[in-house]
């Protein structure tokens, strides 16, 4: 896994290999469930952007009662570098500024862009907790298998992270219509199909509203 992951659909699959249950997932299922989790994130991002194409992630977080706490640290603990943490009980997202600075530098982003991306990642987990359900449960495996006897079932936590990557990347691509990210690099693209479709829908809604006084 990369030190500063900003994966696309393909590289996000790497997240699954770090799940403790990875070896228990049948090989032929691995790609499928990763892509399914990624799509959950993509769909959620599209829905959010369709509802509020002009809104940014900060406003979205604020509107949903999420508190954003910035700590000026490069948080490295237990061999892991933390960029952000979301605590549902406290409706709180902690972002680690110096970790994000490194993330930005390594992904050729500005610090602001990197922070937005990371907040979008955590916002997906907020959606999982409150709206769309736990992505880790889209695929389950038996907790204990003794011969043909299967006891209990467990979801795959990594799928939730893959969904969050899918959400963050899609959200970022749509909201930054002027630039599209490709395999970790920022490449210029004006009016991506995705962005145009969503903006077009929004413009159409506004036109309808103007002509017929229909509320959005």
């Amino acid at each position: 896994m990369k030190q500063f992951p900003f994966p696309d659909r393909i590289t996000a699959r790497d997240e699954l290999t770090h799940d403790v249950l990875y070896k228990k997932i049948p090989e032929e299922e691995r790609v499928r469930i990763c892509d399914e989790a990624w799509q959950v994130g993509v769909d959620a991002a599209r829905r959010e952007m369709a509802e509020d194409p002009d809104g940014n992630i900060y406003e979205l977080a604020k509107a949903n009662g999420l508190q954003i706490i910035r700590e000026r640290v490069d948080k490295v603990s237990g061999g892991l570098r933390f960029f952000s943490e979301y605590t549902p009980n406290k409706s709180r997202i902690d972002v680690y500024v110096l970790s994000i600075r490194l993330f930005a530098k390594n992904n050729h982003l500005t610090e602001e862009e990197a922070e937005e991306l990371i907040l979008a990642h955590e916002f997906f987990h907020f959606l999982e907790e409150n709206k769309i359900g736990d992505t880790s449960q889209i695929y389950t495996i038996p907790r204990v298998t003794i011969g043909s006897l299967k006891i209990g079932k467990s979801g795959i936590r990594a799928l939730s992270e893959i969904g969050a990557h899918g959400f963050a990347r899609t959200y970022w691509e749509i909201s930054h219509g002027e630039a599209q990210l490709s395999s970790g690099n920022v490449t210029s693209y004006n009016n991506s199909m995705e962005a145009r479709m969503i903006r077009g829908k929004h413009d159409a809604d506004q036109l309808m509203s103007f002509m017929f006084g229909k509320k959005k």
Partner: peptide
């Protein structure tokens, strides 16, 4: 009870 569930966006601090 105090902190409940937690999500973290983290990655290995060093290349594996």
């Amino acid at each position: 009870k105090k902190n409940g569930k937690k999500y973290a966006f983290a990655a290995p601090a060093e290349d594996e």
